[in-house]
Amino acid sequence: MGVDLSEARGIITSFLERAEKSTDGVTDTTGLWGDGLELDSLEAAELSALLEDAFGSDPFSAGDDLPETVGDILAFYEAAAPA
């Protein structure tokens, strides 16, 4: 897949800015739901579409488990990257 993780971080950041959510203090361990970014299903769907458009697949649509943190999203692309 060859995903540039900094590009994935950029997409997450610009998504949060458009959604008018603070990007201050967001790290790889920041949760996507609940006490973290507090994404609801529509916002998560929006982020998944952005990631799919950029990279052809996204961690919200692949596999059984939804990502729980920002780091899970990055790990999805890291795992898919060629060795």
Partner: peptide
Amino acid sequence: GRPNRLTGAIVA
């Protein structure tokens, strides 16, 4: 409509 696993579809 654009299919989406989380919501069935989103408006595109």
